[in-house]
């Protein structure tokens, strides 16, 4: 029984090493397979939404162009810069975590959290601006897409803030991740997913 426990422990350590160093196996992408199945399904959901947006724009090109010009590109660009910087600090946190530097991991995670919160605050300032100008859900089909897609993304970011906070808590308390498909890299990749979704919807809604 004791030998079995030791073997399990060795396997856990081996899995941990393979998670952090080797991703050449098709079933072992960075962060584990489950987060990648989730990432791909999310990306395809947004791509399908973009396809319906494209179809609707083909029906009402004038309305879509006029409505797009009502959006605030400065807010959106600042938010893009914030999200990219936040992702970069998550990358740094992952590196620090792999090299077992607790202080650096926590510092980078806190910076990412602050930047993520700034994204949400700016987003809500933007929403308030649009709502005040009576560009709400139901105003026209462009603003229906605008609200649904950006809100859906904002919900992902809010969940991501929770994920980053739990990673910071786990690191602070030195709690080990027990599962192969649920580790520090998994949480980090969820945050990058928020970035990827924004890279899909930002040009389509705000710029094209």
């Amino acid at each position: 029984m004791e030998r079995h426990t030791d073997l399990k422990g060795d396997l856990f350590i081996m899995n941990k090493i393979s998670n952090t160093k080797k991703y050449t196996d098709i079933l072992n992408p960075p962060g584990g397979l489950m987060i990648w199945i989730f990432t791909m399904s999310e990306i395809f959901v947004f791509i399908c939404a973009i396809a319906t947006f494209l179809y609707q724009r083909g029906l009402e090109p004038e309305l879509f162009l006029k409505s797009r010009l009502e959006l605030n590109q400065v807010f959106a660009t600042v938010n893009t810069l914030i999200l990219i910087t936040s992702s970069f600090f998550v990358v740094r946190a992952v590196d620090a975590y792999d090299s077992k530097n607790k202080k650096k991991t926590l510092t980078n995670l806190v910076i990412s959290l602050v930047l993520g919160l700034s994204f949400i605050i700016i987003k809500f300032v933007e929403y308030n601006e649009k709502a005040s100008a009576n560009f709400t859900l139901g105003s026209n089909s462009f603003f229906d897409y605008y609200w649904v897609l950006t809100m859906f993304h904002a919900i992902h970011v809010i969940i991501g803030l929770g994920v980053l906070a739990s990673l910071a808590f786990y690191t602070y308390k030195d709690i080990e991740f027990k599962e192969e498909d649920l580790n520090f890299h998994t949480g980090a990749n969820y945050w990058h997913l928020c970035d990827l979704i924004w890279m899909i919807i930002f040009p389509v809604i705000y710029l094209l």
């Binding site: 991703y23 072992n28 960075p30 962060g31 992702s87 970069f88 998550v90 990827l196």
Partner: peptide, 10 residues
């Protein structure tokens, strides 16, 4: 950022 350059070609 997501480390896919190190992953399987799929």
């Amino acid at each position: 950022f997501m480390g896919i350059f190190q992953a399987h070609i799929f």
